[in-house]
Amino acid sequence: MFLAHLNWQEAESVLKAKDLVVIIPLGSTEQHGPLGPLGTDFIIPQHLAEQIEAKTKALVVPTMPFGVAAHHTDFPGTIDIGLEGLTCVMRGVVENLMKHGARRFLFLNGHGGNDPALDKVGLETFRAGGLCAQINWWSLAPALNSQWITGHGDAQEVAMIRAIDNSLIRDDSLIPTTVNHLSAELRNTHLNQVRFGNAAVKVIRDVRSTVNSGGFGGLESGLGTQEWGKEMLEAVVDYCVGFVEAFRQVDIEGAHRHV
């Protein structure tokens, strides 16, 4: 079911279901390396939600296309609504649906910068009698297959977009990646991660000061194939469908009981 397709009377009945799981797809509108479209982070969760909906009785709300993307704003087209902005929107979505009975929510997230806002809303929801789960698809994928290496605007995301709509990837936009490492000893392994000795340290910079193309951290963007994307997409959807069915059975009162 899609919330946007229901009238209010239908929504009233659906939201009263005791085992309802509400899926909230969200991401960001931001640069995604030389090949990834600006909508990568919300296009993928939206597509995943549509696939999950077809195999479950979950209720899918309209996708949130904006998120926390301050460190990407040096690239044209990026839209950042900030931590407070995303927190406010997600809180409003959950509170209004809880008012009419919903208790179980799944944030289907496409952007790591959104995590703090989702954590905050999740705790607030718990204290109000509900329960929020969060699945970040890009970190789930390597747990399902260690070869599906993750980064930002890299081959993993390009592969997923190719599987959804290959026309969104324009290969003639591929440019060589240049990384501005902090020093010979402190070399970036991700956008805000540098390697020192046997460990990683977070050093915050605007992304464009770290890497020229915006894509970095996994395999090179040009290595993302449609075949990889299709296999990954199917595996992620299957996992999420299984989770939704298990989440549906959770005893909400029991989850709030002190131990």
Rank of each mutant, 00 (worst) to 15 (best):
G151A: 06
I79C: 06
T56I: 09
R170C: 07
E234H: 04
E231Y: 02
G215I: 05
D206T: 10
P176T: 08
G214Y: 11
G254K: 12
I149W: 00
E53Y: 09
S173N: 14
P62T: 02
Q9C: 02
D74A: 14
W8H: 13
V121Y: 03
I161D: 06
S13T: 13
E12V: 10
A143K: 15
M90G: 01
T150S: 13
K55P: 06
L97N: 04
R187Q: 15
S13D: 12
L108C: 14
P65D: 01
E124W: 15
A69C: 14
A163N: 09
N180W: 04
A128S: 13
D172S: 09
I79V: 15
V194M: 05
N109L: 12
T177M: 14
V22T: 14
F243T: 00
V194T: 07
V250I: 15
A70R: 11
P34W: 07
F216L: 12
N7P: 07
S28E: 05
I23W: 04
C132A: 12
E124V: 04
I169S: 09
V179Y: 03
L108P: 15
F42V: 03
D154Q: 11
P25M: 06
A235Y: 01
Q193R: 15
D172T: 14
G214V: 05
E12P: 06
P176M: 03
V158D: 04
D19A: 11
G67V: 08
S209V: 02
L97V: 11
F243P: 02
V89A: 08
T87L: 13
V22H: 03
C88L: 13
